[in-house]
Amino acid sequence: MEVSVTDAEGQLTELVRRAEAGDEVVLTRHGRAAVRLVPVERRPTATERRALMERLRRVGSSKATPGVSAARSQDDLYGEDGLLE
């Protein structure tokens, strides 16, 4: 939707609501696009970020499969004498 700046002055509240709802609102000056109204992305709060990290940890640990410990992953490269085989 394109609206001239002059017309937008009287309906700014409605134009902001439409932009927040996802409509593309372009303000024009002398028939040329000048400004686009877009909603600001809301940033998650610290509590929301912490909750997301906890959910990711739970999902990750539920999908983990048991295996060889990374601490011992190179043991098969060395012989009993400690030298490379």
Score class of each variant (00 low, 15 high):
V40P: 03
E14C: 13
E48K: 12
A46Y: 07
A34M: 13
T47R: 12
R36C: 15
Q11S: 11
E24D: 12
M53S: 12
V16Y: 06
R57S: 06
A51P: 00
V25R: 00
K63I: 08
A70S: 09
E9Y: 06
P44I: 11
D7I: 04
G10M: 05
K63Q: 10
V16D: 04
R58M: 04
Q11W: 05
P39A: 11
V16H: 05
E2N: 10
A64L: 09
A71W: 10
A70R: 09
P66Q: 07
L56K: 06
A64F: 01
K63M: 13
R17S: 13
R57C: 04
A21C: 06
G10W: 06
R36S: 15
R49C: 10
A19F: 03
R36N: 14
R55D: 14
E24K: 14
V3T: 05
T28N: 01
D81V: 03
V35W: 13
R17T: 13
G22Q: 02
E9D: 07
V3I: 15
A71R: 10
Q11I: 09
R43T: 14
V38L: 12
D81Q: 03
V38K: 13
D75L: 14
A34N: 12
R32L: 12
L56T: 05
E2Q: 03
E41I: 05
L27R: 02
L37K: 05
P44S: 11
G10E: 07
A33M: 11
V3G: 00
T65S: 14
R43G: 05
R29L: 15
V59R: 08
G82H: 03
D75K: 06
G79Q: 01
K63L: 14
E80D: 09
K63D: 08
E48L: 11
R55L: 13
T13Y: 08
G31E: 03
T6A: 13
R55Y: 03
G67T: 04
S62K: 12
V38H: 08
E9P: 03
L37C: 03
S61C: 06
A46T: 11
V3D: 00
L77S: 07
T28V: 11
A33G: 14
E14Y: 10
L77P: 00
T65A: 14
A19S: 00
S62F: 04
G60D: 05
L56N: 06
L56I: 08
E2H: 01
R18Y: 04
D81P: 00
R29G: 14
P39N: 08
L12Y: 11
A8L: 04
V3Y: 04
T45D: 00
V38Q: 09
A19N: 00
R29C: 14
A46Q: 02
V35M: 14
D23E: 15
L83H: 13
E2P: 04
V59E: 10
A70C: 06
A51D: 12
P66C: 04
A34V: 08
S4Y: 08
G67V: 00
L12I: 11
L84K: 02
G67L: 00
E9F: 07
L37T: 09
G67Y: 00
V25S: 02
A34C: 09
A64I: 02
E54Q: 13
R29E: 15
T65I: 13
R57M: 07
R36T: 15
E24V: 13
